[in-house]
Design a protein around this nucleic acid. Structure first.
Lengths: 116, 116
DNA sequence: CAACTAGTCAACCATCAAGTTATATTTAGA
DNA sequence: TCTAAATATAACTTGATGGTTGACTAGTTG
């Protein structure tokens, strides 16, 4: 085990905490996750995302702005149509890690329930 | 490269999106990140966390409840004192991934600014 | 130019969530 | 038992946010 020596945890200044939290918060919204998921298969126009998610157009547009300004998606304009795409596929690694954490939590609860 | 064949992305049902978003949302709050960070060095009582973060006692307690019910921290009661600890150190991997994404985003912007 | 289409923006409302204050609960100790 | 300490909970206030509606912008087409 390497637990004898405490790892030097990087200091979390309030400013850093704020920035990191902001990014987490953007992912903490089902609709935005749905948009990212829809974009996982490739570039999509706003209209396509509207039909894919069943949400209102203005709503989709607003969420896309948030994702855009946080750097999660990129934008391309073609005529009157706007196409969005994933900026960094690593987002999905994040999601999978969260899923793993959820499943781990469930396993822990399961163990707790089946204990003697 | 394995990009020729599209990976079969797991389906994101609304229910799954809601659960995943809920977890992200818990991390999307500076105070809760500060609490997790304070716990990174080891188990702490509520009082210790109050002085460590400078927040109100009731506030800290409430955030701890959230972290607890989402399975991010575990709890131990000793007399009248409650000790909290990190349930799964993988949370910090998540945070570091987010930091990486932030830095990557900044690099991208930097490149965009220094382009011809 | 008029009509249409795709998307963004602004205003509004309802809901939610963070923080505070006060109160309840539980345990230790005089 | 009475008190004090540590924590949890309830009630409340206030600011943030998701969703909708409607106006506005900019291309496209007749």
């Amino acid at each position: 085990m390497a637990s004898a020596r405490q790892p030097a945890h990087p200091i979390l200044t309030p400013e850093r905490a704020r920035i990191i939290a902001e990014r987490f918060r953007v992912l903490g919204e089902p609709m935005r996750l749905a948009l990212l998921h829809a974009l996982q298969a490739g570039e999509r126009s706003v209209g396509e995302l509207v039909t894919a998610t069943g949400a209102g157009q203005a709503n989709v547009s607003k969420h896309l702005q948030l994702l855009y300004h946080q750097g999660f998606v990129e934008r391309r304009k073609e005529g009157v149509t706007a196409f969005y795409r994933i900026a960094d596929p690593h987002v999905f690694d994040l999601c999978e890690m969260v899923c793993g954490g959820i499943q781990e939590g469930l396993r822990t609860k399961q163990r707790a329930m089946t204990e003697v």
